[in-house]
Design a protein around this nucleic acid. Sequence first.
DNA 1: TTGATACTTGACTAAAGAGATCATATTTAT
DNA 2: ATAAATATGATCTCTTTAGTCAAGTATCAA
Lengths: 141, 141
Amino acid sequence: MVISARVHYACVAMLELAIQSDEGSPVAIREIADRHGIPGPFLVQILRSLRALGWVQSIRGSHGGYRLSVDPAGITLLDIAEAIGSQEAGCRTEANSTPIAGMLQKQWDDAAEASRSILGQATLSRLVDKARHGDETMFYI
Amino acid sequence: MVISARVHYACVAMLELAIQSDEGSPVAIREIADRHGIPGPFLVQILRSLRALGWVQSIRGSHGGYRLSVDPAGITLLDIAEAIGSQEAGCRTEANSTPIAGMLQKQWDDAAEASRSILGQATLSRLVDKARHGDETMFYI
DNA sequence: TTGATACTTGACTAAAGAGATCATATTTAT
DNA sequence: ATAAATATGATCTCTTTAGTCAAGTATCAA
């Protein structure tokens, strides 16, 4: 699975919003963009997509910004990558024409599934905890 | 890890050569291309790359073609993908600028490593066995 | 009511990579 | 000789990626 800059930025933004969700005031795009060196107008595009997905809400006007509008425990990096990124993982060959192609396709699928499994376990809430408590290894039941 | 058509074709070709390595006569590009619906001139390009890697050898002239020049047990799909494909797995962000970016980078790396692990176990010889003996599950020590 | 701040929207562009395609040359068996 | 193969370098089109721009709209605060 190739993670584009777009997907990476989307994850950065979602994490920033998750971290700052305690404070009442919304977070401005500029703040996130400046802190992470992301081109502002590009981040605007990305947040529009996230809003279309219903994952963030926007507050217009002065002192406006964005707020997370979902439970951070319910969104994983995989969700974001699949929603924002266009690039499929693995390889989609047309109609396993030959036994060899079919066998290879299965390997590509297995490899892609392995990546997806990792990213599917990384919820925003876990990552926020990780970011807050430093690098200590954490155990979950 | 995104598997391009180029990588997929390269793997098909290597498997074909591995399967037909018993017979003395080399395999023509046309034969592989026709059997799998691969554009001939494109496959030529790919076999050139494989030859440059020292994995196949070419025999020119009439009745010429290609032959595997390495042990099929020593080459995996990962080797081929990394040698032929240009696209890196995961995501390379520049110099983990922030804690959040660094944390994400680690997730991208973990996901990429999971894919690589799967493809790294798929040697040509195993796949050839699989292709020959049908779909029976095989056990290796 | 006016200005500053911040989001909204749609269009646009440059660069890179993917996936071929083509023409021409060279080698070898028969 | 000639047919069958590979060798080589150039070129081409299409899609995606990453980013930019301009003009509009909403809200707050003085």
